[in-house]
């Protein structure tokens, strides 16, 4: 059965790297370029593939700042039809992010809401289940495969000890695992065409009520010996001696 799908995909722009603040020697991402989170890339790719297969539209949504514009343009170049940039992101706060996103999409028509399972910077994995809860829509989490049939979506979730195949009525919330696909790299032509795709910018009015207080944010100190041998034979000799000692040989 032919069903044109209306897909929303959330993507996250994350700092490319973490720098050492010269004053505090602590970590900082100030002035660091943003990139699309790898797992968001998988979510975008899956949204585009589903759209290509079933017809319909795929819209990207991100909660961030102006700096996320380039990341959204890249997702448009990959094949999303339009983008929504919600400004007002004030640091990692999953329940706040979830409520901003849930409120925004509750005003939209959609069949699938797609996320990456867990972003590589904060790695909390909280937002997709929270959005799913707030919208009272089913969740298929850490999906390694997805199939749309009529008004239902089927997906296999990868867990540590077993996999579970789920079926849910759409609209449904999906979070994807990295294994689900290999994201495409947009061509130059697509990148140029992306600048003509609609990208709307809006402002979220969200207030955080979180009690979190940061006591310390540091680079973990590695206590390793770091004895490095560039002479292979000498290295083998020394490492074999270390291993023999550990093995009690």
């Amino acid at each position: 059965m032919y069903v044109a799908l209306n897909i929303l995909v959330f993507l996250k722009a994350i700092p490319e790297d973490v720098k050492e603040d010269p004053r505090t020697h602590g970590p900082t991402v100030e002035g660091v370029k943003l990139k699309m989170d790898d797992i968001s890339r998988n979510a975008v790719e899956e949204a585009i593939r589903l759209k290509e297969k079933h017809g319909g539209r795929a819209t990207g949504i991100t909660f961030g700042s102006d700096a996320a514009t380039l990341v959204m343009k890249e997702a448009l170049a990959m094949g999303l039809d339009e983008g929504v940039l919600i400004k007002g992101y004030a640091g990692n706060n999953p329940s706040l992010t979830a409520s901003v996103l849930a409120e925004r999409v509750s005003r939209m028509q959609w069949d699938l809401l797609m996320f990456g399972f867990s972003s590589a910077d904060s790695y909390t994995a909280q937002v997709p289940p929270m959005v799913s809860y707030m919208l009272k829509r089913p969740l298929i989490g850490n999906a390694v495969s997805l199939r749309v049939e009529g008004k239902t979506v089927k997906g296999v979730s990868s867990y540590e000890d077993y996999n579970v195949a789920y079926e849910a009525e759409m609209p449904a919330v999906i979070s994807v695992a990295q294994e689900i696909n290999t994201p495409r790299i947009p061509t130059l032509l697509q990148i140029m065409a992306a600048s003509k795709k609609p990208l709307s910018v809006e402002q979220a009015q969200a207030q955080s009520a979180r009690t979190l207080q940061v006591l310390g944010h540091t680079f973990p100190m590695s206590q390793r010996k770091r004895i490095i041998f560039e002479d292979t034979n000498k290295g083998v000799e020394e490492v074999a001696a270390v291993l023999r000692q550990v093995l009690g040989k």
Partner: peptide, 12 residues
């Protein structure tokens, strides 16, 4: 945090 590059200590 930051994919394991940094360590956060928090009161929550």
């Amino acid at each position: 945090f930051y994919g394991g590059k940094t360590l956060l200590e928090e009161k929550t």
